[in-house]
Amino acid sequence: MGDDAGFTTVLFAMIAGAIRVSTPFLFVSLGECLTEKSGRINLGLEGTLVFGAMSAYAISYQTGSPWLGVVVAGIAGMMFGAIHGFICKLPKVNDIAVGIAMMLFGTGLAFFFGKAYIQPAAPRLPSISLGWWSDDPQVRQALDVNPLFLVGIVLAIVLWWGFRNTRLGLIVRTTGDSAPAALALGVNVNVVRFLATAVGGFFAGVGGAFLSLYYPGSWTEGLSSGQGLMAVALVIFARWNPLACFGAALLFGAAGALGPALQSIGISRGYHFFNAAPYLMTLAIMILSISPKRSLKGAPGELSITK
């Protein structure tokens, strides 16, 4: 009986975790999906995520408005994306190396300006309760949903629809699959990739705002440990499909919630092992889903990472 109760607790914690923890994964992976669809990879989104988290927290603390924080985090992320896009536009520059540099630069800047905001408490984002129909407090808690989660779902659907059915989507896909073909269509490849990277950065910044303003809900230097990077791997797993990105984000969220969930019912042995679960899962998923023998379905042809 006790085991059963423990099991349901863990199960609910993981469902709740999937909803709660997945949002930053979702935003970063959608941003990365857009950037990669245009034929460029941005590994620096980890840095963008951390800087977005810091700036959102700082703005929310200074102005008292968490939503303004979200917007500013997005704009800051867009600047980072624009820097990345601008540097990659130059000839002979390796986009993976620029990503690593942006990762270090973004985290460095965030820690530099974020030092003053580690202690104070900033207003957090509100949540919407979708569990009103249930009497079970566990269900209610699990269904306390942040509006950004819903925005992320809408965004995933819009991107998925947009890639298939709009002229803009066609331009981005063509640029990513074959730069010469895009050129022949009269598309300016550099401008498309620049914009795709900047907008992708905006999404990642918003994902960072979620981290500091909702869950875990405070600004610390260890706030994101590799979530931005895992989201990049997640896009490959999702085969550059925004809807699949959403599913993969839920899966990663559940894996991330496993450690804390087990701890909540008193299993603290192997805590560090369960903390490593998301990274192990990312690696395992990549091993299982990528084969060197065949090219990946849906992979943009110009992408350096799949070559």
Binding site: I87, V93, A97, V98, L104, F105, T107, F111
Partner: peptide, 13 residues
């Protein structure tokens, strides 16, 4: 870290 990040970026440029 900020200095290192700037060095890295300028170097790549």
């Amino acid at each position: 870290l900020v200095l290192q990040g700037m060095m890295f970026l300028v170097l790549l440029v």
